[in-house]
Amino acid sequence: MATLLEHTTDVAVRVTGQTLTGVFASGLEAMNQILAPQCCLSPKQADCCMDVALKAPDPTALLVDFLSECLALTYIHKTLFCFVHFDQLEPTRLQARLYGHRFGCLENEIKAVTFHTADLRQNREGVWETPLLFDL
């Protein structure tokens, strides 16, 4: 799940998930909603799939790296990756397969996924959450 936060210049959201997998998927969903609102809500058959394998020093860096990688692949392959399957997801490493479909034109250009205020951790209820700022 993602909720919009106030930010003068860019788009800030708080992403949450009951599990690490859930919060990573929420981050991807939030990013896609900015790039092409509604586009992932009506599922189409995937016409492209890509494998991603990443390591990072902490869960926050892993999430930002994962989204940055998805963003780069989106632009390079002109494909919106609406679905992700994690073969492995630990706090500092992941292996995933992205499934997507090609797009014509995106509604917004995200320049980057930033580390600004990002801090992925479990709250007292055990829910994973972090703010994320996308540079537009």
Binding site: T8, T9, D10, T114, H116, T117, L133, D135
Partner: peptide, 9 residues
């Protein structure tokens, strides 16, 4: 100036 990330814009 306005709010950015890291440095302000």
């Amino acid at each position: 100036v306005h709010e950015g990330y890291g440095f302000p814009i």
